[in-house]
Amino acid sequence: MKQIQSLIACLALAATAACVPAHAQEGDWLSYRDAYRGMVAFEKYGKPKQFLQQHYQVSARDGSPLPPDFKLVLSGKSMQLNLPLDAVGRAVFPLLKAAYDENAALTINRKLGAYVFRPRVSIAVRPDGVYEGAELRAACEQALDFQRTVNAAGYRDKHCVGVRFTFAKKSDADVRWKGRDGAPLPVLSGPAFPDEAGNAYSVVTVRFDAATDKGQVISQNAPLALAPVFE
């Protein structure tokens, strides 16, 4: 019971620390019901969230990209669904009554202990690559408000300082402030999300300043992910 409660707490709080319980490692599966309880918190969240999106994310503990043949599968008495993962390990999580009632299993074709499983709230990517500075700040604030709702102690003293654009390679990472000097912002190696490990991606952090709300950020290529940055 303590192990199950530990998993529920970690998923519901979307904690930044790694959270894979002992029973999951032993049985090579995770409870859909437990994951559901963590994911449904965002669905029920009643405050503004129009700039946000939520996925169920799998990431390697060592920060390496997922193998090309990596699979996340939902299996129950009446179903077996492959949950496709994007380039940063996120899947659209189906909220299914039948899977909940059956307490279906979430499995991967690897050892669970090497991976972290969590709800992941991120900022929706714009197809035209044009982001109003004021909207980026609002998106970050919406994400912080949600995190404070599910984990008040962990986020009480955090502040929105910017957003992170993540790309597969450096040549794709061309992000600029429109109307400033026109130069692309610095590109570093890092994880897709600030609370992860590793340097598998090319990332650009757009930090907020006094002029943010009056400007636009232009990304020449669609990022793999767009994440709020809290400090």
Rank of each mutant, 00 (worst) to 15 (best):
Q147W: 07
K178Q: 14
G154S: 05
A211L: 14
Y100P: 00
D128S: 03
A211M: 12
N151C: 11
A152H: 07
V206G: 04
P184H: 08
T205C: 10
V150D: 06
E135F: 10
A99M: 04
G154K: 09
A139W: 13
T166A: 13
R120W: 12
L136H: 03
A98V: 08
A98P: 03
E196M: 13
E132T: 07
S202P: 09
T107G: 01
A197W: 07
V130N: 01
L144T: 05
V204W: 09
A98Y: 03
P186A: 07
R120Y: 11
V206L: 06
S171L: 05
G113A: 11
F165A: 02
K111M: 08
F193T: 00
P127K: 02
A153L: 14
D145Q: 12
K170L: 02
C140M: 06
R137M: 07
S189R: 15
V150W: 10
A104L: 03
S202L: 05
F117G: 01
S171R: 12
G162Y: 00
G198N: 09
T205S: 11
S202T: 13
R156F: 08
V204R: 00
K97P: 02
R110Q: 15
R137H: 10
E132K: 14
Q147G: 05
R180S: 14
V203K: 02
G179H: 12
V206Q: 03
R126F: 03
V125I: 13
G215P: 10
Q142P: 06
G129S: 04
Y201E: 07
Y155Q: 00
D174H: 09
A99Q: 06
A200L: 11
P184N: 04
R164K: 13
F208H: 04
A105W: 09
L106A: 12
Y100D: 00
V161A: 02
C160W: 05
D213T: 14
N199I: 03
A192F: 09
A99R: 03
A192H: 12
T149F: 15
E102Q: 12
V150N: 10
A114P: 00
D213F: 05
N103Y: 06
A211N: 11
A200F: 13
C160L: 04
E196V: 09
F208L: 13
F193G: 01
K170G: 02
Q147F: 14
A168H: 10
D213Q: 08
T205R: 06
Y201W: 14
V206T: 07
A168Y: 07
F117Q: 04
K178V: 15
F165V: 07
K214E: 15
F167N: 07
V121H: 01
R164W: 09
R207E: 15
R110H: 10
D145V: 12
Q220M: 11
Y115N: 08
V161G: 04
P127H: 01
A168R: 15
E196I: 06
I123P: 11
D145A: 15
R126H: 08
A183T: 11
L106C: 08
Q220R: 14
V203D: 06
F117P: 07
A183G: 07
A134I: 15
K97S: 10
L112P: 01
K97W: 11
S189P: 04
D157M: 03
A183I: 07
K111Q: 14
K214F: 14
A173Y: 01
L136C: 09
G198C: 10
F167C: 06
G154N: 05
F208C: 09
